[in-house]
Design a protein around this nucleic acid. Structure first.
Length: 556
RNA sequence: GCGCCCGUAGCUCAGCGGAUUAGAGUACUUGGCUUCGAACCAAGGGGUCGCAGGUUCAAAUCCUGCCGGGCGUACCA
């Protein structure tokens, strides 16, 4: 509806004034109409006419061209054109399928990115939730989306953890692993070992040297494809525990990744790629291989360190090459924390020098940190970080306290919605109590709104739903809001900003509740029409929540 | 020092070139259930949109400077 209108208006402008202009329709306050545009104000200067005059000429022409589609056009304020759609056109807008703007495209979406041997923190929870929503949007627009995960199964943190593990096991004794039988025990042990190793690395020079050595041994183990030595046995077993832990987490969230790219796999590719371009793109400096980002107003960063080991930079180069090898993507979306933003610019700039297409096809989206409102007592034993499980536990506890029930779908919906409703980019102050509240702009509010609508439909089960036409005022407001759904999705997809959907769904639910307050459905003379509206509303809400990765239960 | 991001009601946030009154939620005050789930709806108070300039018919929105905060700034990720 919207693009077609915009085209018609643009064509009329060209005919009348011989001017090509990008027409953009906006959604004004309901009192002003269904769509508005400021083209007359933009044109006035060029044409050397007064804006209201231009608007009036355009209005006359459009009244003819849009007969049947528009029931009223008016000039308002400094020269805005307001359009009121005919009921017929408005109703028709509900059934228009959203365009498959990304049909035929292959997109790789990388997010979450937890490191084996380390604990999942609140940031992993956030990026998983946001990444899922964005991947859903891309998929909804017709793209073939591959959800992938990247994580460090090699690197200094692994050396740190291995160091503490070996201490705890009393040397390279894989048999010692058997005392950790449940996944919970295994994960707790790993995260303890990381913290111990990390502290030792900072405080103890001897330990530091040992850790550096262990880090190298882990790389060697991969090079030699060693699965048999006691050291390798310890490494592979505990690495698998980490992946088991991640998989359990994603299953809980409802995230589905099709592939993990462990750094051990991207490291050799990155190493080879960087080495291939030494002298042209990368250069030797103080025994390391660097990319001179300063030439491009960026930082200079090390890609291969003076020990000959690839840094994160080289692994990321390898990752992009691996994604291209595996998927031949048209577009690559990477979602990470925003502390990495400058870093990523350097990596992409370096890749641009030899694979410009890959760099240009890559979009790096970033988010802030998750903090708990009012602060939270954090365990220094765990390194003073807010863990993913801490956030989920806080949400579950808050939900139990307000509703007296334990409901995974509601708790998860609360957390997801609280994260998603905010524009991607800034920090999140997460308030568990507010997120589970059924009052206000929350996930549970929307879930409840959906359940209520389903309840009406259940009560009217078997009754015919009718054709929607000749709308009454309250009905029209609801239809008007429903007709915006596609636009909200398009906007969220174009910008890769899921929060637009949250804003829309909340407004939709409010519009419905207002309608519901004043308009009886069952037993009313207009029951058939209104039932159709309720059904349309419930489905819209459900679809929107689904895109966000939030369950829409029929009752709660 | 330099680079990037952020400063909008008490709190948490939308809005990011347009409409006499800058919007939500929350908190506070008040009104509405013998009727489809009141976990709802309605009304009210609360803002020099960090500060100062500039561009524009029009600036919370664009540009510049300043103040405040966060992050980054070569062998961590």
């Amino acid at each position: 509806m919207k693009p077609a209108l915009e085209q018609t208006i643009a064509a009329a402008i060209k005919e009348l004034f011989g001017s090509e202009i990008q027409v953009e329709l906006t959604r004004p306050d309901e009192q002003f109409g269904d769509y508005a545009t400021n083209v007359a104000l933009q044109l006035a200067g060029k044409l050397n006419k007064k804006p209201p005059e231009v608007a009036a000429i355009l209005m006359e022409e459009l009244r003819v061209k849009l007969v049947g589609v528009v029931s009223d056009i008016s000039v308002a304020g400094p020269g805005f054109l307001n359009f009121k759609l005919s009921d017929q056109a408005l109703v028709r807008a509900l059934t228009v399928a959203s365009p498959q703007s990304l049909a035929g495209q292959t997109v790789v979406a990388e997010y979450s990115d937890p490191n084996p041997f380390k604990v999942l923190h609140a940031g992993h929870l956030y990026t998983s939730v946001v990444g899922d929503a964005i991947a859903n949007l891309l998929e909804h627009a017709g793209a073939q989306v591959h959800r992938v995960n990247f994580g460090g199964d090699v690197g200094l943190h692994v050396g740190k953890t291995m160091w503490a593990m070996l201490k705890d096991l009393g040397g390279e004794n894989p048999e010692g692993l058997q005392k950790y039988t449940s996944l919970d025990q295994q994960v707790a042990w790993l995260s303890d070992c990381y913290v111990t190793g990390n502290n030792a690395y900072d405080d103890d020079a001897t330990a530091r040297a040992e850790i550096v050595e262990l880090n190298k041994r882990v790389y060697q183990l991969h090079e030699q494809n060693d699965h048999d030595s006691p050291f390798a046995h310890i490494y592979w077993t505990s690495r698998q525990w980490s992946y088991d832990y991640f998989n359990a987490f994603y299953e809980y969230l409802g995230s589905k990744f099709e592939k993990y790219y462990p750094e051990s796999q991207t490291a050799p590719i990155g190493l080879a790629t960087v080495k291939e371009h030494v002298g042209t793109v990368y250069q030797e400096s103080d025994g390391a291989i660097v990319f001179d980002g300063e030439k491009y107003g960026l930082h200079t960063r090390v890609f291969i360190n003076s020990h000959g080991l690839p840094t994160y930079e080289a692994k990321d180069v390898g990752l992009i090459m691996a994604k291209e090898r595996d998927y031949h993507f048209d577009r690559s979306v990477i979602i990470t924390g925003n502390d990495i933003i400058e870093y990523m610019k350097v990596v992409l700039k370096s890749i641009e020098q030899f694979e410009p297409k890959l760099a240009q096809a890559t979009t790096h989206l970033t988010h802030g940190i998750v903090k708990l409102a009012g602060g939270v007592k954090m365990s220094s034993r765990l390194g003073n970080i807010l863990r993913a499980v801490d956030v989920l536990d806080a949400a579950a506890a808050a939900n139990k306290a307000t509703t007296g029930k334990e409901d995974k779908q509601v708790t998860l919906g609360a957390v997801k919605y609280a994260f998603l409703k905010q524009r991607l980019g800034g920090d999140i102050i997460y308030d568990p109590k507010e997120s589970v509240s059924l009052e206000g702009n929350s996930g549970p509010y929307l879930q409840y709104a959906h359940a209520r609508a389903r309840s009406i439909l259940r009560k009217a089960d078997g009754q015919a739903t009718g054709h929607v036409s000749d709308l009454q005022a309250g009905e029209r407001s609801l239809v008007r809001k429903l007709s915006e759904y596609g636009e909200a999705i398009d906007k969220a997809t174009a910008e890769l900003m899921p929060h637009h959907i949250c804003t829309y769904l909340y407004e939709l639910a409010q519009t419905f509740n207002r309608f519901y307050e004043h308009n009886r459905v069952i037993g009313d003379a207009r029951q058939a029409t209104r039932l159709a509206l309720v059904a349309q509303y419930a489905n819209t809400l459900k679809n929107g929540l689904q895109l966000l990765g939030i369950a829409a239960p029929d009752s709660m």
